[in-house]
Amino acid sequence: MRRLLLRLLFVVALPAVLVAVWWAGSDGSTDPFWPPLRTILKTFPDVWTGERLRTDVVPSLLRLTAGFAAAAVAGIALGTLIGSYRRVRAVCEPVLEFLRAVPPPVLVPVIMLFAGIGDTMKIVVIASGCVWPILLNTVEGVRAVDPVMLETARSYGITGLARLRNLVLRSASPQIFAGLRQALSIGIILMVISEMIAASNGIGFTVVQFQRSFAVPDMWTGILVLGLLGFLLSVVFQLVERRVLGWYHGLRASTRRST
């Protein structure tokens, strides 16, 4: 119980300090672009009503989910293929290095030419940025599978999908999840960027509309929503990761105890 309380204290301490500093630093501010925190918090419930959550937050989450899921499927599948075969990796590596060096926001005008300005464009933009950390981490995770374990599986006749599911993907899963965690942060950024450029709803669209109408406190509430959304998604991701990689965290804990 004491350990849990200490952990909770560590989690809450830094945000509480940052909020206190923000409150004290902005208190009494007369700058129209830097309103006091108390004004922003007072404006928050008036702006982010149930109706606005339904019309702006939910569409953003659906786009993020669709783009992230598409990137996860493509990244894991291609990463497994490239990481498993040396010749495929040798052929694909120069092209991958070229494509991943192109910033995804730069591709937004190009994607708009082919996908229009609807939800498809936003999903493609999110997926185009999220796929790279997943793909590259999957490649490295598959390459790092113990060759002795691969040979043992082969000698026991474990091949095909059984070998892929029970050995390759399982061994590479910690690194795959590291790529998924990086992709989630990138996805949130690209979700906002795509909605700022061409959208009729969404969090990014709403923040830009507030900025253009000089509703500065309302704009700051949108930034707070994005921060809270990122935090909640990170917590959910950690819970899923803990459940899926329970064997890995247990192994690490037992290793630390033995040393």
Rank of each mutant, 00 (worst) to 15 (best):
residue 6 L to D: 10
residue 13 A to L: 14
residue 16 A to I: 09
residue 19 V to T: 08
residue 29 S to K: 10
residue 31 D to F: 14
residue 36 P to I: 10
residue 39 T to E: 05
residue 39 T to D: 03
residue 40 I to D: 00
residue 45 P to W: 09
residue 51 E to H: 07
residue 56 D to A: 11
residue 56 D to N: 14
residue 57 V to E: 05
residue 69 A to R: 02
residue 72 A to H: 00
residue 79 G to W: 01
residue 83 G to H: 01
residue 87 R to L: 08
residue 90 A to I: 13
residue 91 V to L: 11
residue 92 C to W: 10
residue 111 I to G: 02
residue 123 I to W: 04
residue 124 V to N: 01
residue 126 I to N: 00
residue 126 I to K: 02
residue 128 S to P: 04
residue 128 S to I: 06
residue 128 S to M: 10
residue 129 G to R: 03
residue 130 C to T: 04
residue 138 T to A: 06
residue 138 T to S: 10
residue 142 V to L: 06
residue 145 V to R: 07
residue 159 T to K: 08
residue 162 A to L: 13
residue 170 R to T: 13
residue 173 S to D: 09
residue 173 S to N: 12
residue 174 P to V: 04
residue 179 G to S: 12
residue 181 R to F: 07
residue 182 Q to I: 13
residue 184 L to F: 11
residue 190 L to M: 09
residue 190 L to Q: 02
residue 192 V to P: 00
residue 195 E to L: 03
residue 196 M to G: 10
residue 205 F to G: 00
residue 206 T to R: 08
residue 207 V to H: 01
residue 209 Q to T: 15
residue 215 A to R: 09
residue 216 V to R: 04
residue 218 D to Q: 13
residue 218 D to L: 04
residue 223 I to M: 15
residue 225 V to F: 01
residue 231 F to D: 07
residue 234 S to F: 11
residue 236 V to F: 06
residue 237 F to A: 08
residue 241 E to M: 04
residue 245 L to Y: 04
residue 245 L to F: 05
residue 248 Y to P: 03
residue 249 H to C: 06
residue 249 H to D: 11
residue 250 G to P: 09
residue 257 R to F: 05
residue 258 S to A: 11
